Simulated assay, not measured.
Amino acid sequence: MCKLAILDKFTLFASGIESILKITNDCEIVHATSCEELFKQFKDSAPDVIIIDVIHGDNSGMRSIKKIRRTYPQIPVLLILSQNYSDCFEEYIRLGVKGFVFNDASGKDLIEAIKRLKEGGEFFRKKVWDIFKTSIQRRKYGKKKSQFLTDREVSVLKLFSSGLTYKEIGARLNISPRTVETHKRNILAKLKINTTADMVKYAYRNHIISK
């Protein structure tokens, strides 16, 4: 019997994942909408794999991943995501995530990913590495200060510099406007600047965007 935990804000999306997994008939599944709720269900026994839907999560799922890896580092984490999160791939892997399954993948891929992680392996299709390499090649970090920005912050900086609103940036990156606001606040603090105009100037001067 394989015990799985699904962290997902939306019950409907989680139900779709559960319906795929129940085909195997040998899975015990628990679902929670927050880390705190999830941890309460670990009192009797910890799961073999934790599945996190980062598409519908806040802050690209980073906060939840960090909390889970810090509290239960021995449990492998599998992410459900889309290609729009390519600029976060490196950070996800650095945090210890063991596998990615894209939201357009087949149920067979999801089941195979869980099996590999349960056996102590990893699940990263060639598609992941191709997207990862392309993302790295497209980076245009400027001088020293921009190296302190995460990939996601660089993406947000570029989109603000293109004149997009919080809502438009959120839609483009599949994150909430509030998360966009958090990223902007972090960018301003790291670069020691005060306004969106300063961000645009910085992006041009450091060749993060072209004139």
Rank of each mutant, 00 (worst) to 15 (best):
E90G: 06
N25I: 01
I29F: 01
K158M: 13
I75N: 10
E168D: 11
I65L: 08
I175L: 04
C2M: 15
V154R: 06
N84L: 12
K126A: 10
T195D: 05
S106P: 00
V156R: 00
V30Y: 07
L12H: 13
F124M: 02
R116W: 03
L79W: 07
N84M: 09
G16L: 04
F39C: 04
A14E: 10
I50M: 08
K190G: 00
L38K: 12
I193S: 01
T182K: 12
L12W: 11
L7I: 11
I93C: 02
F39N: 07
K201L: 11
K184R: 14
G142E: 06
V54C: 07
R172E: 13
E90T: 03
G57L: 11
G142R: 10
D109A: 10
T179L: 00
K3S: 14
R152K: 12
W129S: 14
K22Y: 10
A46G: 00
N186D: 10
R152N: 12
K190Y: 01
D53K: 04
K140H: 14
R178P: 00
K43H: 09
H56Q: 13
K144R: 15
A105C: 01
I169E: 06
L78K: 01
G99A: 06
R152C: 01
I75E: 05
K143V: 12
R172Y: 07
V200M: 07
K9G: 10
K3R: 15
S106G: 03
R178N: 13
V128K: 07
G163D: 08
S19L: 13
I169Y: 00
T165S: 14
G107F: 03
I75P: 04
F100R: 04
D48Q: 09
G107Q: 06
E168H: 02
K43M: 07
R69G: 00
N174L: 12
G170I: 03
G163R: 12
I51Y: 02
I50E: 01
E90V: 04
S176A: 13
E37Q: 12
G170L: 04
N25H: 11
Q147E: 12
L4M: 04
V54M: 01
I20A: 09
S82W: 08
K98M: 06
D198S: 07
M1H: 12
E28K: 14
E153G: 06
K211Q: 12
I20D: 01
I65E: 05
V54T: 12
K127T: 13
I29Y: 03
R205D: 07
H207D: 11
E90I: 03
D26F: 03
N59V: 01
D44Q: 15
K98C: 05
G16N: 10
K184W: 00
E36A: 11
K190I: 05
D26Y: 06
V128P: 02
D48P: 06
Q83M: 08
N59L: 09
V97M: 03
E28I: 10
A5L: 07
I55G: 05
T182S: 14
F124D: 02
R185K: 15
A46C: 08
E168R: 09
